[in-house]
């Protein structure tokens, strides 16, 4: 398995992502500079890491979405290649039009770093096969602008097509938008592209992978990716 983690000025969770890919998925990892125009040959997975690319100035992800490397990322996605955007990476994917909708400021207007409950909406994608459908995960979030929203038609379409990947849940597994950490519509924490090969999510599975540090609920995502790529090879 070969992964490319894209480094924008202001990215700051690139090492966390690279570490999870190596440690859990056993992946070979290239850190790729935003100014490049090609991905390393035979890249299986592209990861847009968390951070504050370009300081989150203008609008989160808006400048990074127009970076040089994004042409190659888009081509990779269009070929059906796997793309994972975490936090700022999710914001960039939305700004780049690779995923619909947008992440706006948290409903309470404050940055929030907290472990939340996530409900796995489907366990049959390249990102989630190591989980069970409706499994509750505990994964941290750390963002000020994670409030997912989109127009009514888009939300209906996402729901109808089963493209919601994860939702913020209560400890009992129920979804209540008002209880969510950021006000995201329908508790949406992550969504897939039409072909299910692009996933954008606000929570940080890469920060819950080692028992030594805390919980390990994030491992499943990287294990799923490793298994999916192995099966495809």
């Amino acid at each position: 398995m070969k992964s490319a983690v894209i480094l924008f000025p202001g990215s700051n969770r690139e090492h966390d992502a690279a570490r999870a890919l190596k440690l859990v998925a056993g992946s070979n990892v290239n850190i790729v500079w935003h100014g490049e125009s090609e991905l390393p040959k035979h890249t299986d997975l592209v990861v847009l890491p968390g951070g504050f690319s370009y300081g989150d100035y203008l609008r989160c992800g808006a400048i990074a979405a127009r970076a040089n490397i994004m042409g190659a990322v888009r081509a990779h996605a269009e070929k059906g290649g796997l793309v994972l955007g975490i936090c700022n990476g999710f914001q960039i994917l939305c700004e780049a039009g690779l995923l619909p909708g947008v992440l706006v400021r948290n409903a309470k207007l404050r940055f929030v770093c907290r472990e939340v409950f996530l409900r796995v909406e489907r366990a049959d994608t390249a990102f989630t096969r190591a989980y069970r459908k409706n499994e509750l995960l505990r994964i941290p979030i750390a963002h000020g602008e994670g409030n997912y929203t989109a127009d009514e038609t888009t939300i209906k379409q996402l729901e109808a097509e089963g493209r919601v990947a994860f939702r913020y849940a209560r400890a009992d597994g129920q979804i209540d938008q008002a209880d969510g950490p950021n006000g995201a519509i329908n508790g949406i924490a992550g969504i897939y592209s039409e072909k299910l090969n692009v996933l954008g999510m606000m929570p940080h599975p890469e920060n819950n992978i080692e028992a030594q540090i805390g919980r390990t609920d994030g491992r499943g995502l990287f294990e799923s990716l490793a298994a999916a790529l192995k099966a495809a090879a």
């Binding site: 966390d16 404050r110 940055f111 770093c113 941290p140 750390a142 940080h204 920060n207 030594q212 540090i213």
Partner: peptide, 29 residues
Amino acid sequence: VWEQYDHLILGNTVQKPGGDAAVVRIEEG
């Protein structure tokens, strides 16, 4: 207060705020 601070980035926070002292892993431990 401390939920407004990213206390988990870098993936080495063994004990987060709220205890007697924070504990942060050094490299791979």
